[in-house]
Design a protein around this nucleic acid. Structure first.
Lengths: 232, 232
DNA sequence: CCAAAAGTGTTCTCCATACACCCATGC
DNA sequence: GCATGGGTGTATGGAGAACACTTTTGG
């Protein structure tokens, strides 16, 4: 196949993934980083990612890299932004299509998922300085997460399948960086009619056990088709 | 410069621009297309765009191509999405970073802006079949425009600097595809405090002349810093 | 029995909506 | 004087915001 004949200015394309995780108990927001084993930026922490292959789409590349470097599969993944400033990679012209992923740390255990030798979760507030322009990518991802949380039901991706209303509220308070009124929050969330009361209760807590709910994805998709707008 | 040494899988990167224009009088939404002079898809209409050069950022490339192919400069331009499916370009692996631009057809005259031989404005509803996957890019851009119009003041980019409230309303009605109540629309728009009444009036109309307003960009930027959210 | 978080209703304010007529201008 | 769009106010209902106490459970 004469791929390169019509292709001026060959350029490398990478994908980089900002992986957000939420510990449902401590409810602090974390990101998954890997320590670079090669130059440039050897030893520095960076977003998981790598070069896009000829025979895979961008989303496929992002999922493959995520699997290879962190062991994560089947997670929520969405394109974020494409970074292509001239000097962003010292190796030459490298354009990075950034993705962000949402996982919950209970079901995707930090330790167990670490196929790569040096992947680790960092609290967003305490993240180290990152390689390349990954700091900027992280900031962009945080802004996107904050913005989307309000009008799309992506928060549930950060929680276990069964969760309590307090967990959901703490998630929103953490990401949006502000307190929410408990009664109003519950009223609003339940009024959407998208949570299924499982009639089960959390265990192992030293206080009244909270009811468990799950998000009704099927119902949401139906409503969305009819023009329904999620908003919290 | 040893650009290619560390660069596996050389791939071409293009930018493509979805240019939206609004004729303030007829208030129908148009896009700017160019007719391809080269294979593949020779003779077909396509989005303006081209290959990214080594020494320019993605946004710079988009502006350059826009200037070269359509004569447009200084317009609103924002990254839309990156398209990288394997078979999207018959020439080989070409990844396209799509941008969308907003211009108003009064100040950027359709004819005058046509440096390229065959650039033309099409009503979005009546656009021809496009080359490559540009149809999909257009759909994505339309969805983005519709979504952003509600909570960011980008509509003003489609109008002349001085505009009437009816023009603004028709713009919203066109893009959002639904009628709006005149009194409520005016009340809401004016209550934002972001329109400056110029105490001037439109001319050349066979009825009562409407007041002209301009959008107060400076004030908006100040408010935005303080956490203000535009919403219509 | 104490600590810790779960769970629950009402009031008030404000904003979105619905709705119809007179005004100014060019022809 | 008539056709065309410009411009204006009010009443109603519903949603968001503020707010405090009782319940349940484990230790």
């Amino acid at each position: 196949m004469a791929k390169n004949i019509f292709v001026p200015n060959p350029t490398s394309v990478t994908v980089d993934c900002v992986v957000f995780g939420m510990d449902a108990r401590s409810s602090d927001l974390r990101i998954l980083l890997i320590q670079r084993e090669l130059e440039p930026y050897r030893g520095r922490w960076a977003l998981p990612g790598g070069f896009v292959r000829f025979d895979e789409s961008l989303a496929e590349a992002a999922r493959r890299e995520l699997d290879e470097e962190t062991g994560l599969v089947g997670v929520f993944l969405e394109q974020l932004f494409t970074f292509g400033d001239v000097g962003r990679d010292p190796r030459g012209r490298v354009i990075s299509v950034a993705y962000y992923a949402l996982v919950n740390l209970d079901e995707h255990n930090p330790q167990a998922s670490t196929d790569a030798r040096s992947a680790a979760w960092f609290s967003v507030a305490e993240a180290p300085k990152l390689a390349f322009d990954h700091q900027g990518i992280l900031q962009t991802a945080l802004a996107r997460l904050k913005g989307k949380l309000r009008y799309e039901p992506i928060g549930f991706e950060l929680l276990p399948a069964k969760f309590t209303l307090s967990q959901l509220q703490r998630l929103y308070e953490t990401v949006l960086e502000g307190p929410l009124d408990k009664r109003n929050f519950r009223k609003k969330v339940l009024s959407l009619g998208l949570l299924v009361d499982l009639n089960e209760f959390e265990t192992g807590v030293a206080h009244r056990a909270a009811r468990l709910y799950r998000f009704d994805e099927t119902k949401y998709k139906q409503l969305k088709k009819k023009g329904f707008l999620f908003e919290l």
